[in-house]
Design a protein around this nucleic acid. Sequence first.
DNA 1: ACGGACTAGGTGTATATACACTTAACGCCA
DNA 2: TGGCGTTAAGTGTATATACACCTAGTCCGT
Lengths: 148, 148
Amino acid sequence: MNDSEDKLRKEVGRTCACFNLRRAARLVTQRFDQAFRELGLRATQLSVLVAVYDMPELTVSKAARVLGMDRTSLTRNIQLLERKGLVLVTEGDDKRVRNIDLTPKGVEVLKAAFPLWRKAQSEVELALGNEQWDALLSGLHEVARKLR
Amino acid sequence: MNDSEDKLRKEVGRTCACFNLRRAARLVTQRFDQAFRELGLRATQLSVLVAVYDMPELTVSKAARVLGMDRTSLTRNIQLLERKGLVLVTEGDDKRVRNIDLTPKGVEVLKAAFPLWRKAQSEVELALGNEQWDALLSGLHEVARKLR
DNA sequence: ACGGACTAGGTGTATATACACTTAACGCCA
DNA sequence: TGGCGTTAAGTGTATATACACCTAGTCCGT
């Protein structure tokens, strides 16, 4: 490996957008998953529940766009939530679409998750400090806006 | 759901550290995976190769710490790279540890990946602009430093 | 009405990730 | 030196994620 390759290699380790985003996501996800463990809920599942509550009669494709997630990934997520009895999937008027809605149990779990979320979220915000946290969040929003 | 619960729910959607990190990581990973497709390499695999090259005689546990990844997740990653013939896993003097090193083929793939990485990385940096990208990267580093 | 283009969704397969548990090796000390 | 606590690693299982491919329903022009 020559000098310029060595330089590039070091740059990858330090600055790679993909690696740094994934590493941070892994670390934060571990904390959040831990926080929701008592509900038998994973962090990803909570974000799906929130989106479903926010948008009644949500379809799989619409939800995938909002969540910045591949449609087929979301299908598996929703199947899981359905098995847990947290969401209800029904056929739309257009027979191709599936409408996703929270069950009463889903709403209960969502409500129970809020204080646990608040705690996990505060830990991250505290670790960074308000200023850096705001900057980070802006950057993440911008990534979603530009690459969605 | 009462008013304060509604407010919290909306806050989750907008500000959740876990969701926003994961969504950005998903979107960026899709681009990077796409960029490396011609090498049969995924973005995560590249970051492992870089770490392995950087630290000769790296062990699984040490690599996991550096990469901010669960040790057992890394085991699966390394098994994959071993099957592809990109890394070599050997027993250490201490018979418990495994030393991970790149094979010549691994070095070749790593070198071939650099220009592809440069291109994918530039797209993200351009999408955000230098200032916001620097702020985002700092935040991600800080998350790793504080939560590792 | 029909046929093709388009759209919504699911499945097969592979990788990524982590927790709980297990196994094997090391080291120390009584 | 024999046993026990510690450490390094792998396995079983479950979820998360995405691409390639497939199916079925809708729409529209003729």
